[in-house]
Computed example of a mutant assay.
Amino acid sequence: MAFCQNCGNEVEDGAKFCPGCGNPLDGSAPTQQEQSQGILGDIKKTGLGFKKKMDNYAHGEHINYEKPEGALYFINGLQGTLAVFEDYVEFDFSGSGIKKWQSGFGGVKKVYFHQINSIQKRDATELVNDTLEFELPGMATSKWGPTSENLITYLPKYQDEVNKIYDFVNDKILAINQGKSQPTQVVQNEVSPMAKLKEAKELLDMGVISQEEFDEIKAKCLEQM
């Protein structure tokens, strides 16, 4: 077993750095740049760790929000949870006091895909939580505000699920819009030969057509049977 010449801490054989002070064990002292990078790295790790703990608490990650039955996708956001079903999306802002305050709404809101004009995604990173927002007719998109009824702020851990939701909803909106643009087809019901013959007989009985005209119609109807 070896010992660090800088702090005297006991180190394992073959170790390149002291686990106590970080001093190289090959006898060379760390450069000023290496020391700075080490300090900044420690600060970053500490800061990210604290941010993660605070974000997890604010988003309610300590609460077990279960994916609703039948939901295709599900995320737990700051304002509430978002569940995506085959025909609609459902916001649930009733999970906690924080969610009710952040959403400025509370309760549960169901939005069908034909009601959605567009969907906007701002990707999250290690340092930034971001948002998934739905634009509905007559409602302007929010400017990063926390009180939109159609916005969910999500943690980086949900980025893959958010990407799937974004693609799924966009496909739904596109399919609905393409369906609206298709020309309307007028379906004409074809009258059967027997119905034509019956109508001609009624016209003959009323004196509207002659016997000769009726016989012509009758011959054509019999050919079509």
Rank of each mutant, 00 (worst) to 15 (best):
Leu78Val: 02
Gly138Glu: 11
Gly70Lys: 06
Cys4Tyr: 09
Lys220His: 00
Asn177Glu: 14
Thr153Pro: 07
Lys51Asn: 12
Phe105Leu: 00
Arg122Ile: 02
Ala195Ser: 14
Val191Arg: 15
Gln120Phe: 03
Gly70Asn: 02
Leu78Phe: 11
Cys4Leu: 08
Lys52Thr: 10
Ser96Lys: 07
Phe17His: 09
Pro183Val: 06
Val169Trp: 10
Lys67Phe: 01
Phe168Ser: 01
Ala2Pro: 15
Ala2Met: 13
Phe74Asp: 06
Gln120Val: 04
Ser96Cys: 07
Ala2Asn: 15
Trp144Leu: 10
Lys99Ala: 09
Glu66Tyr: 00
Leu40Thr: 13
Lys196Leu: 10
Ile75Gly: 09
Val208Ala: 14
Asp26Leu: 01
Leu222Gln: 14
Ala175Ser: 10
Ile119Ser: 02
Lys51Gly: 02
Val111Asn: 02
Trp144Asn: 15
Glu69Val: 01
Gln115Pro: 01
Leu136Ala: 12
Gln32Thr: 14
Gln37Ile: 08
Gln102Ile: 00
His59Pro: 02
Gly179Pro: 01
Ser192Asp: 14
Gln178Cys: 03
Tyr166Asp: 11
Ser28Phe: 05
Gly77Ala: 03
Lys100Ser: 04
Asp130Gln: 14
Glu34Ala: 12
Lys45Ala: 11
Lys180Ile: 04
Glu90Thr: 07
Gly207Phe: 05
Glu10Ile: 08
Ile75Tyr: 07
Asp171Trp: 00
His114Thr: 06
Ala200Ile: 04
Phe214Thr: 08
Gly107Trp: 00
Asn150Arg: 11
Met194Gly: 14
Asn76Gln: 13
Asn129Glu: 13
Ile75Arg: 07
Tyr154Ala: 07
Asp171Cys: 00
Ser142Asn: 10
Asp87His: 11
Glu133Trp: 07
Ile116Asp: 07
Ser118Leu: 04
Tyr112Gln: 03
Leu132Trp: 10
Ile98Tyr: 08
Ile39Tyr: 13
Ile39Lys: 13
Lys201Cys: 01
Phe214Val: 07
Ile43Cys: 10
Leu127Asp: 06
Ile43Leu: 15
Thr141Asp: 09
Lys16Met: 02
Thr147Arg: 15
Pro19Lys: 04
Ala195Val: 13
Gln178Asn: 13
Lys180Phe: 08
Lys99Cys: 04
Asp55Tyr: 09
Gln37Lys: 14
Phe3Met: 10
Met194Glu: 15
Asp26Trp: 02
Val111Tyr: 06
Thr141Glu: 14
Asn23Lys: 00
Leu203Ile: 01
Lys201Thr: 02
Gln79Lys: 12
Ser148Glu: 10
Lys121Leu: 03
Ile119Asn: 01
